[in-house]
Design a protein around this nucleic acid. Sequence first.
RNA 1: GUGCCCGUAGCUCAGGUGGAUAGAGCAUCGGCCUUCUAAGCCGAGGGUCGCAGGUUCGAGUCCUGCCGGGCACGCCA
Length: 585
Amino acid sequence: MKQELERLLVAALKTLEGSLLAELPPAGAVTVERTRDAGHGEFATSVALRLAKAARKNPRELAAAIVKALPSSPLIERTEVAGAGFINFHLARAAYASELAAIHAQGDAYGESRMGAGERVLVEFVSANPTGPLHVGHGRQAAYGATLANILTAVGYAVEREYYINDAGRQMDILAVSTWVRYLEICGETLPFPENGYRGEYVRPLAAKLRAEAGQGLHRSAAAVLEGLPADAPAGDKEAYIDALITRCRELIGVDGFRQVLNLALAHMLADLREDLAEFGVLFDHWTSERALGESGAIDHALAVLEQQGRLERREGALWFRATEFGDEKDRVVVRENGVKTYFASDIAYHLAKCERGFKRLIDVLGADHHGYVARVRAGLIAMGQPGDCLEATLIQFVSLFRGAEKIPMGKREAQFVTLRQLRAEVGNDACRFFYLMRSHDQPLDFDLELAKSRTNENPVYYIQYAHARVASVMKQLAARGLHFDLEAGLANVARLTEAQEQAVLSSLTRYPEFLEQAAVNRTPHTLVHYLRELANTFHTYYNASAFIVEDATLRDARLALVLGVAQVLKNGLRLLGVSAPTSM
RNA sequence: GUGCCCGUAGCUCAGGUGGAUAGAGCAUCGGCCUUCUAAGCCGAGGGUCGCAGGUUCGAGUCCUGCCGGGCACGCCA
């Protein structure tokens, strides 16, 4: 609808070219907007105000000329000049009739578009270290990333979802050694647990699996393990201690033994993450391993590209990337003095690989604390000859949990944090996804468990679902009364929907494609949430104002066609959010 | 200190790439269930859009400076 009006407007402006207008405004500048006030029609444009100066014309006069030049269209009932020079469009009832017919014809596909033109987009999200369970912050990133990917898919992008597994590096070694120490405990040894180890209960089952798999094969005495190790915190340095412990572990059980422990721990953690996310309705097309990336030579490849571009230099024994030449605030080390490649090196290699896999747009969904990293990676991409603007980072602000007014403290490394799994178990997946998506992602989120759980009208989750269920209930009632719904007759009689509430519902319904597109362009799933709430609101108001199942068969069919259209759009929107659309509540 | 995000009703937040009289939920107050689900609807009150300038026909929205809050600034990952 909106696009059609914009097309008409451009046509009108074209006829004025050379007379009133020196030249046509650029393609994207001729826009039509929804009005706020129903008295101003459904759509309005301010082009006349914008073009008045260049045309050296009074805005109202220019607007009048544009209106006069406007081709006629079955969509438009009336066009008027208003205010300082706005052009208001009042839609013909037929415009709504055809849009409602489109909703019924397209069904689950209604609202989809080809805006993205099949462009390949990679959305990387969550990518939490596989060293512990997902917490509530990851949950927000999961809900956001999954929904954004759904929305982009709906508007015609070829989207793939990816989880980057940080399975190389020291954190994994720490997970492995933590597992081994718990394993030794199972074997009957008594030794202190490292301060900097992973102290969570989830490590114990990993150790039990290790015991089942390896038997006593990796069992070494506590004395052998601890002999000559530096002091752990608080007396000593916990970092130095755990590094020494890792080294000792490798000495005692061998590189192969250590790898066995690490691989077992990693495999089980990943299986757990995958299950957790899948239960949450969050699925990935790719799980890309940092370790595999290194083994494939991708990091060396990226460094070779940088070297070839002359962007590397050796300084104080380390290899540096001159990132400042590409907008980063400081140069970055890619290979440390000890010869080990940095995390940054594998990161730019990973992003280069994404580009080389053929993705035109890379969307990284990151925790807000990662914002410093974006300029760095972008600098790397540009230096390696990739378009820097292909990388787009969406930063997700933090989540604070509340139980009513009481804030739940969230220890970071301590075992006391609330996991995503616990949260889902307590409030349910629907409320969880909805609450995560309710607020703008760049706004910190206060997540109230009590509110999310409550089955009262204070809880916004049910409001939308209830509207959907109510429609289903009406159809059940129809059947119970032995009546039948005739869609064709309903669509043929949309003109009979003259009540103010019916007009409001029709108007709200037809906005769905516009909101979907807006949510996609701006990467803002929450605007879709707000739209669905508004649609539900117009529906509930209508429900309270009129009976749908009336004697007059054609009016009844028209009304039912309308409310079934509402149910369809609610269902489509909720599906994108990952929230169910129940038929009874 | 430097960089990023933010500041809108008592509370929690929207505000469509600069448009017409700034909106919603909760909370408060007052109404609506013998009639398709009251997890609903209708109405009322509630605002110096942090402050001060600037850009223009027009600013909550864009620019600058201040005030206040959150986060980040490793040869960690």
